[in-house]
Design a binder for these strands. Structure first.
Length: 453
DNA sequence: GGGCCCGCAGGG
DNA sequence: CCCTGCGGGCCC
């Protein structure tokens, strides 16, 4: 018999009615509300705050992740063995976790629950109520419901099919929910401030709310302005959407479709920090965001996907310092390499479009607009219009918020990757991978937690 | 609308 | 420190 909780609107997924608060019971592990009278076995007392929902108390695993009972008891056994020194215990645990392969390379793969590998593929946060796809990627229950609500049936991370049954009846990965809850508790007990992690820009408080010009600027106006205060608390190297936790002023985060007057204002809300450059990123880490202004002839903007050109080797119209015709090949260096890292890793990249040189019908009427997150499916180098090689990127939209433009082609069906001729004659082709650091192994996580506790 | 200059921000 | 950069204002 099916056992289903209430959905994100509090409506029971079994009887389709919205129970009153007194008829609702929340799970202590995953915080999911359940309709009391639809529960097969009601708890003895309503005031019981230690109630685990059927998902969380069910020891059988619905998900294709490694079963953990054996491993956990094995770790227990090691810990309980009084004949072993702590060092020997540690060694045995390591052997156990490493399996038979004794590769020392695996040391670098030690999992941390906060390292991002378990984060929701859509909102990039550690899920409170994780749902795990058969391909091993995690999503918040809420994000997952929105995703499939738009008719999408492929994994937001790796595009593997989502089974119909999972789409219609998503179930919380109770073991992972437990692991995350325990890890959060352990972390907050450590005295560290714990999530949500906030970032304070240096000297940010001293800045005014709007852009300003300094004494030495010879002209007033935004062209030569210094940035005003950064309003959000996401660190500059934060990937993915800007959530409400990091928006202390409005407490709503940056939503798809948010539009600002200019690049400075866009920067102040954290969507894209550089106020001139088109790519935000670090070559050894990845790229957080890009700006599309329509200024590149080779770029093709189809809304849901677009082709982007790397930086360098181009004359910016009007900028004297850079308009000397550079006829050298672009390479995957600096920002171009940052984009390639994000491609390899499958990181989401925030995209803003501006109206300047409006060449695409997807550009906003005016100002700078946040259009959600995209992933870079492929990147390569090829001959550009000026004969030298340029870095090129294929971005495909991957956001659970609807796009800010209206179009029939959007969202309601999973689409294959666009067919493009671009790759003819291309070199250095890189494809997006489901990077191992984004997969997870619950058995290892649980074992680590056990060691913490 | 094109050209040009200005100067901030941030990666390396 | 150095250098660049898918802004933006203003002059012609």
């Amino acid at each position: 018999m099916a056992q289903l909780p209430c959905d994100s609107d509090g409506v029971c997924m079994l009887c389709k009615q919205k129970p009153s608060p007194s008829q609702t019971l929340s799970c202590r592990t995953c915080a999911t509300p359940w309709h009391l009278s639809c529960l097969p076995s009601a708890p003895l007392s309503l005031s019981d705050s230690h109630w685990d929902c059927p998902d969380c108390s069910d020891t059988s695993n619905h998900y294709p992740v490694a079963p953990t009972a054996d491993l956990v008891s094995a770790v227990h056994a090691i810990q309980a063995d009084t004949s072993l020194t702590d060092q020997e215990k540690a060694k045995k645990r390591q052997e156990l976790l490493a399996g038979s392969s004794d590769s020392s390379k695996d040391k670098a793969k030690t999992k941390d629950i906060f390292d991002g590998s378990l984060n929701c593929s859509i909102c990039m946060q550690l899920p409170e109520r994780p749902v795990t796809t058969p391909c091993g990627h995690n999503l918040c229950l809420r994000c997952f419901e929105k995703w499939v609500g738009q008719g999408k049936r492929t994994c937001a991370n790796c595009r593997a099919q989502i089974p119909a049954k999972m789409a219609s009846q998503p179930r919380i990965n109770s073991q992972l929910a437990m692991a995350i809850r325990l890890a959060k508790a352990a972390k907050s007990g450590e005295g560290s401030s714990g999530p949500p992690k906030v970032y304070h820009f240096v000297r940010n408080q001293d800045r005014p709310d709007t852009a300003f010009t300094t004494e030495r600027a010879k002209k007033t106006g935004k062209a030569n302005a210094c940035s005003g205060k950064i309003f959000v608390t996401v660190p500059p190297d934060h990937f993915g959407p800007i959530p409400s936790e990091n928006d202390p002023i409005r407490n709503r985060g940056v939503l798809v479709g948010d539009t600002w007057e200019d690049r400075m204002e866009c920067r102040q809300w954290g969507a894209h920090l550089p106020h001139v450059a088109g790519i935000a990123g670090q070559s050894g880490y990845g790229s957080q965001s890009v700006a599309l202004s329509g200024g590149y002839e080779d770029d093709e903007d189809h809304g849901e996907w677009f082709l982007y050109t790397g930086s360098g080797g181009r004359d910016l119209s009007g900028n004297k310092r850079t308009n000397k015709l550079q006829s050298f090949d672009q390479k995957f260096e600096n920002m171009n390499e940052a984009l390639r890292v994000s491609c390899r890793k499958g990181y989401p990249v925030r995209v803003v479009r501006s109206h300047k040189e409006k060449r695409s019908s997807y550009a906003p009427e005016s100002g700078v607009r946040y259009d959600g997150v995209y992933r870079i499916e492929k990147c390569w180098r090829k001959n550009g219009t000026q004969g030298c090689k340029v870095c090129r990127y294929l971005f495909v939209r991957c956001d659970n918020e609807p796009a800010p433009w209206t179009s029939d082609e959007i969202g309601d069906r999973p689409r294959p990757l666009p067919k493009i001729d671009e790759l003819k004659g291309a070199v250095d082709i890189t494809e997006r991978k489901g990077d191992p650091s984004w997969d997870f192994d619950v058995s290892v996580v649980l074992a680590l937690l056990l060691l913490i506790g």
